[in-house]
Simulated assay, not measured.
Amino acid sequence: MKKILVAVGSGLKGGNTDQLADAFIQGARENGHEVQKFFLGGTDLHGCMGCGACQKNGNRCAVKDVMQQIYPYLEECDTIVMASPLYFWTLSSQIKAFFDRMYALSKENIYPQKDTVLLMTSEDDTETTFDRPDSYYRFIVKALGWNNTGTYYAGGCHMKDGKKQVPERHLNGAWLLGKSM
C-alpha cells in the first residue's frame, strides 16, 4: 500500500481538475492505497519567501499557512500527485507555489525520494496543448531526483449545461492511472 498525497491546484471545487483528481483517487483507493487530498484553491497558500529559515530551523517553514497542515503528509507520503488546470500555457499558481514551498523538505538541496504524478485539464485540445507544463514538470521532477510515475492530460474539457464537464474518456484514463499505482 502506498501513501498518496493529491494536491489540487484549482480555484473551483467540483471543477474539471477536481473531477479528474477524484477519478484518479477512486482508482488508487480501489487498488488499496491510502490517499489524502488537499484542495489548494481558496486557501491562504503563499509562495516561498526565499528567507532560508527552513534550512536553519529543522526543515520548518517560517510561512504560516495551509502548507503547515500539508507538510506532515508530504514527509510521510510515497507519491505526490499534482492536479492543475492549464492557465496561460502552464501550471496554476497554486501548484507552482506548492512546488516552491517543498524547498522546506530539502537538506542541503537534496530532497526525500518521492514518486510523482501530474494531472492536468484544459479546454484547448491540440497535440501541443500541454507541451510547456509537461516540460517544466519533467525538469522539476528530474532536478528534485524524483520518479515520474505518470501524467494524464485531459484536453477538451468544456462547460455542459452550465457545469464544468470532463469527457468520460479522461475520467476513465485518470481512474486507470490511479488504479495502476
Rank of each mutant, 00 (worst) to 15 (best):
A7C: 14
V8F: 01
G9Q: 10
G14N: 00
Q19I: 00
A21P: 04
A28P: 06
R29W: 03
N31D: 13
G32F: 06
G32V: 06
G32S: 09
L40A: 13
G41Q: 09
G42M: 06
D44M: 12
C48M: 11
C48V: 11
M49C: 10
M49R: 14
N57E: 14
G58Q: 11
K64W: 00
M67H: 06
Q69I: 02
P72F: 03
Y73Q: 05
T79Y: 00
A83T: 07
S84M: 12
P85F: 03
L86S: 00
Y87H: 15
Q94D: 15
I95K: 10
F98T: 07
R101A: 13
S106K: 07
E108I: 01
P112D: 08
K114L: 06
D115L: 08
L119N: 03
T126H: 09
F130I: 04
D134F: 02
Y136K: 04
Y137L: 01
Y137D: 01
R138G: 02
F139M: 14
I140C: 07
G145N: 15
G145M: 14
A154G: 03
M159C: 02
M159D: 07
M159V: 04
D161Q: 14
K164H: 12
Q165F: 09
P167Q: 11
L171I: 06
L171V: 04
W175V: 04
L176N: 03
L177P: 00
S180R: 10
